[in-house]
């Protein structure tokens, strides 16, 4: 059944969903897009972020977004430590590509199993007074459990964009994978730059996780559904372009929402790869790649 209000609601729901996807993908836009590190464990950190929000929300009634912001510095430190291990074990000896992938797969597995052992496979959720509310403009609905994550994600994206484009460290993060030796000649230590950037990428997972559990209940293995999506968004956005990543996330959200409205929800997991394959066939550098 096709109708204008169905279409309008599908588009709005897609934009809100896509905005949230940007929060999951932004850490990868830094770590994979800028540093070329294939961190497939990133969505697992998002799930840790979601569980952190769940724990502090259910015990102390903290607002999940607040928990995300408070947890971000702790995630940053965890990211720095993880990068140090990765650097010492793989990057320093030049075997980062294949062994590095196996390493992050292992990290993902350990995180998932640890969460399952601690909390089981039940779905967990958070309480906040805005979660059940809906704003309506005309016949278009804006559920706050989608609008809040969208807004936080948009602010996060803008903040990271400004940081990367307006600060010395931000430029150095962009430069480090382009020419490590040249960056050293500028007086920067490439390892410390990458460590900082990796920490920043993981820190965003704390916020993304809190948004994920606002949208809906979470169990330890849902992170897997986001691996393909997040990588597809980063590649589509042009590997490391932050505005490109955000627009790619919106596009994916809209297409997924349309497909699930008009063809059925069971198709939506395949959408990321369909959109990715189609775009790369037409524009190999992604939508916004600086080639």
């Amino acid at each position: 059944m096709f109708s204008a209000d169905l279409l309008a609601n599908a588009v709005v729901a897609g934009v809100l969903l896509g905005g949230f996807y940007a929060a999951v993908a932004i850490g990868l836009a830094i770590v994979f897009g800028q540093l070329d590190i294939v961190n497939i464990a990133h969505p697992a950190f998002v799930i840790v972020g979601a569980f952190t929000a769940y724990i502090l929300n259910s015990r102390f009634g903290f607002d999940p977004v607040l928990v995300g912001l408070l947890a971000a510095p702790v995630f940053f430190i965890a990211g720095v430590l993880l990068y140090r291990i990765y650097f010492i074990a793989f990057e320093r000896t030049g075997q980062e590509s294949l062994s590095g992938l196996a390493f992050f797969f292992g990290v993902m597995f350990i995180i998932e199993v640890s969460l399952i052992m601690a909390y089981g496979v039940d779905y967990r959720l958070v309480q906040a007074d805005y979660i059940g509310r809906v704003w309506s403009i005309g016949f278009v609905d804006f559920p706050l459990r989608m609008l809040v994550p969208f807004s936080v994600s948009a602010l996060l994206t803008a903040g990271i964009y400004l940081y990367l484009s307006r600060t010395f460290l931000g430029s150095a993060i962009q430069a480090v994978a382009q020419d490590r030796l040249a960056l050293q000649l500028m007086g920067a230590d490439p390892v410390r730059i990458k460590q900082w950037a990796f920490g920043l990428g993981i820190a965003t997972a704390a916020i993304a996780g809190s948004l994920l559990i606002i949208i809906g209940p979470v169990e330890p293995s849902v992170g897997r559904q986001y691996i393909g999506r997040a990588f597809a968004i980063v590649v589509l956005g042009g590997m490391g372009s932050i505005p490109g990543m955000f627009i790619a996330a919106l596009i994916l959200g809209i297409v997924e929402s349309m497909v699930s409205t008009f063809a059925g929800p069971s198709w939506s997991p395949a959408v990321a790869f369909g959109v990715l394959a189609l775009t790369l066939a037409l524009r190999p550098a992604g939508l916004f790649g600086r080639t």
């Binding site: 430029s171 962009q174 430069a175 382009q178 020419d179 030796l181 040249a182 960056l183 500028m186 600086r290």
Partner: peptide, 15 residues
């Protein structure tokens, strides 16, 4: 050894 995907000014500032 420039940073090819950074702008001229970004390259200079990194100097």
């Amino acid at each position: 050894r420039l940073f090819p995907r950074l702008t001229v000014e970004e390259n200079l500032l990194l100097g």
